[in-house]
């Protein structure tokens, strides 16, 4: 398969990239790792006039923790995130997800910014960022804005990012004490996109009840979404198997899967419930101190 023709530039600095995106508004697409964009170009689902390769831009692959949050550069690869010491120590939800994306070659090159900007409904990062109540930093030549993940993923391959903007950073709040996160995914075969997946990030109160819970689902709607009904079931509840099952049912009921090669609607709903259940069990165990 051969992509349609396009021009290609590899600007040396962020300011150059942003200027080009502004000058060529609507004609240009940002090329990061390429593992989402190139397949799209080959299928001719996208035919941009210009690709702006961000490979040479300094600082976009940094992973830095501040007192409040983890800041992941948009060009950080799935592998770099998975192997990062801070992620390994304190962000098990991110580590779970990063290690299971695609296959080793995809993780070597695919980036968190590319995956989020592409917004495949079955992608892993959108559900993770929704559960973790993360945010995405969109930079243009005219300034910068931070968009909550829950307002970023709008529809299949549709996000809040503007054509003149570059996704420079992803931010995830630093989990407090007695917090836990987990990601559970079912796929047809190794390296496949999810049939259903659930991301959970929660914290326990001093009395052992669930203080706050975020639940994001992937692959079971037109885009990743927050399972807000499940979150309402969990909030303030005592973390028991019975509560987990009620939350899982609420998550499945809120899903809107479409039948396709991965399975029929009923099966996907059942898997959305099961993945939510598994992620909840592991997240609570981790909040209680398990690794």
């Amino acid at each position: 398969m051969i992509p349609a023709q396009f021009d290609y530039v590899r600007p040396p600095a962020l300011a150059d990239a942003l200027r080009i995106l502004k000058e060529r508004e609507g004609e240009a697409k940002v090329l990061s790792g390429g593992y989402s964009l190139l397949p799209l170009l080959k299928l001719r689902m996208a035919q941009p006039a210009l690709l702006v390769d961000i490979r040479d831009l300094d600082g976009l692959d940094r992973i830095v923790e501040t007192a409040e949050e983890l800041r992941i550069g948009g060009r950080a690869t799935h592998r770099a995130i998975h192997e990062d010491a801070t992620v390994t120590a304190r962000y098990p939800l991110l580590r779970d997800a990063a290690g299971g994306i695609g296959d080793p070659q995809v993780r070597n090159w695919g980036t968190i910014g590319g995956s989020c900007a592409h917004a495949d409904p079955s992608a892993d990062w959108p559900a993770v960022l929704i559960a973790a109540r993360g945010s995405l930093v969109c930079r243009s030549a005219d300034g910068e804005r931070t968009v909550p993940a829950r307002a970023f993923f709008l529809d299949t391959f549709q996000t809040a990012i503007e054509p003149t903007e570059l996704l420079t950073e992803v931010r995830v709040p630093r989990p407090g004490d007695r917090s836990g996160g987990a990601y559970a995914k079912i796929e047809r075969k190794a390296g496949d996109f999810a049939t259903a997946a659930a991301a959970v990030q929660l914290s326990l109160a001093d009395d052992g009840t669930i203080a706050e819970a975020g639940v994001g689902l992937a692959a079971v709607a037109e885009t990743a979404f927050a399972a807000t009904d499940a979150e309402a079931v969990l909030r303030g509840g005592t973390p028991t198997e019975e509560l987990f099952r009620r939350a899982a049912q609420a998550a499945a009921a809120q899903s809107r899967p479409a039948a396709d090669g991965h399975g029929p609607v009923d099966y996907k709903r059942a898997m959305a419930a099961e993945m939510t259940l598994r992620a909840l069990r592991r997240a609570v165990a981790r909040a209680r101190g398990a690794t």
Binding site: Y8, L31, G34, Y35, L38, D53, Q105, N108, W109
Partner: peptide, 15 residues
């Protein structure tokens, strides 16, 4: 230095 699927890399990216 990293394994890659060369059908998913543009020749110009390898410059």
């Amino acid at each position: 230095g990293r394994s890659a699927k060369s059908c998913t890399v543009l020749a110009v990216q390898a410059n």
